[in-house]
């Protein structure tokens, strides 16, 4: 009846297997598909991601150069990243943080051939202060 006892006693003695998550954060594996970013500077608004996305969560307005993504519908499959011809899409290894409000990521870019100077990367629908998922056009993380 007590065959589990050795395991139990062993667990009492050896190190616990718990990862103390919020206190110690583990380094994610290198290839993890996390949060989706669009380096809007490099985006050519070709619309491939919109076509390929299985969840159809990306909209690309080719004329207005607006790249919109519903992060709540994204399934993190990475197909868009794989197929992006301009390699402007990439995934961080960190997952997307939970939020209390609905958000839509909408990035306003410039047509490829035009001025590459600093342009406003507008986001609508994102409340202030919780905008850490903003794709920051300036700081290129370049994984």
């Amino acid at each position: 009846m007590f065959r589990m006892t050795p395991n139990i006693v062993r667990n009492l003695v050896v190190r616990k297997s718990t990862r103390m998550y919020p206190v110690e954060v583990r380094e994610p594996f290198a290839q993890v598909r996390g949060e989706l970013f669009n380096d809007i500077e490099r985006c050519i608004f070709c619309g491939t991601c919109e076509v390929k996305c299985p969840s159809q969560c990306i909209q690309v307005d080719k004329k207005a150069c607006i790249w919109t993504c519903d992060p709540f519908a994204c399934v993190f499959c990475g197909v868009c990243v794989d197929t992006c011809p301009a390699k402007s899409l990439y995934q961080k290894t960190k997952y997307r943080s939970p939020t209390g409000e609905r958000i839509i990521i909408s990035q306003q870019g410039q047509p490829r051939k035009k001025d590459k100077a600093k342009d406003r990367a507008g986001e609508s629908g994102t409340p202030k202060g919780s905008g850490e998922e903003k794709a920051d056009p300036g700081g290129d993380p370049a994984t």
């Binding site: 139990i8 667990n11 009492l12 050896v14 616990k16 297997s17 718990t18 103390m20």
Partner: peptide
């Protein structure tokens, strides 16, 4: 006692 019980149980299951 109940708190101790829960801690002990957790430790036996390799938890904190």
């Amino acid at each position: 006692v109940s708190g101790l019980d829960r801690i002990l149980t957790a430790r036996m299951q390799s938890r904190i």
